[in-house]
């Protein structure tokens, strides 16, 4: 799997007086088996960017290559692309429409032209992967809890057998338990299924915890790109564009003012605790 954006730009309402630039010269390469988080303020172009990935939006400038091929080519099958680049929208539970959970999950793979037996198998497997038990397969999606609906909707995309799973704010509006479940699901898909994961989030702590690479968007541009431990060192820059850093980074900053030193500010709770304990134990040994 490889997805490459080459100098991609996107302008809304081109040619009208409401013209607005959503993406500005974005170049980006997503490689096989990466776990990427995209952060940025509301309106920074994140949602547009992910809709460029699977051809739902056509870039105004630049080219998108999926597995080496230009996706704007006439003979490039858009539907197949949408199966390979699985995109889960924000609040995806709002798209559920079938009478039963299993039928809804079969909708995507059914559209992909798989054999009926495969459609069924993929749907079962996807529901199993997201942790929806057999007893829920034949109930109406409308009676599920918020977190369950969300997972069924994700299964609906997973069942298309995508090579990369792209999710637009998959945790939005869920309670902590629901958030944990989705995060654990993404980690499982990444580790056990070897999938490439790309998700948008506003929660810096969660991003720091799971992602291997963080992209920061501001005004349609990608302004920072790297592992979370590196990206979140740019506290001042991130705050300037209206984003935060994990609370541990802020704490580490304050501690530095008090004379502590960190080779790199810890970005997760565990890292922070480990750093403090190390200093504590080191201090005890010295004395």
């Amino acid at each position: 799997m490889s997805l490459i954006l080459d100098h991609v730009g996107y302008i809304y309402g081109k040619g009208t007086n409401e013209e607005k630039r959503a993406l500005d010269d974005v170049s980006l390469e997503i490689k096989e088996h990466e776990f990427i988080a995209l952060i940025g303020r509301t309106g920074s172009g994140k949602s547009t960017l992910v809709q460029i990935f699977n051809g739902l939006e056509q870039p105004s400038e630049g080219t998108v290559y999926f597995n080496g091929r230009d996706i704007s080519d006439k003979d490039f099958n858009k539907r197949e692309l949408r199966g390979k680049v699985g995109l889960v929208f924000q609040y995806p539970e709002h798209q559920l429409f079938e009478e039963t959970v299993i039928k809804d999950v079969q909708f995507g793979p059914g559209n992909m032209g798989f054999r009926p037996l495969d459609v069924e198998m993929y749907a079962f497997q996807a529901l199993k992967d997201v942790g929806i038990g057999d007893e829920l397969l034949d109930v109406s999606p409308l009676v599920l809890s918020g977190g369950q609906k969300r997972r069924v909707a994700i299964a609906g995309v997973l069942a298309m057998q995508p090579e990369i799973l792209v999710l637009d704010e998959p945790m939005a509006g869920l309670d902590p338990v629901g958030r944990r479940e989705i995060l654990a699901l993404l980690q499982k898909l990444y580790r056990e299924k070897g999938m490439t994961i790309f998700f948008i989030s506003h929660n810096m702590e969660e991003v720091a915890e799971v992602a291997g690479r963080v992209l920061v968007m501001d005004k349609g541009k990608i302004v920072l790109d790297g592992p979370p431990a590196k990206v979140f060192q740019y506290q001042k820059e991130l705050e300037q564009i209206g984003l935060g850093v994990p609370q541990t980074v802020t704490l580490a900053g304050h501690l530095e003012e008090r004379g502590w030193s960190f080779s790199e500010k810890p970005v997760t709770v565990h890292e922070m605790a480990a750093e403090i304990l190390e200093k504590w134990n080191g201090g005890k040994n010295d004395s």
Binding site: E205, P246, Q247, T248, V269, M272, A273
Partner: peptide, 12 residues
């Protein structure tokens, strides 16, 4: 988060 860190420190 702060309570989580304190908790972890306490446990250690």
């Amino acid at each position: 988060e702060a309570a989580q860190i304190a908790e972890e420190l306490y446990e250690h």
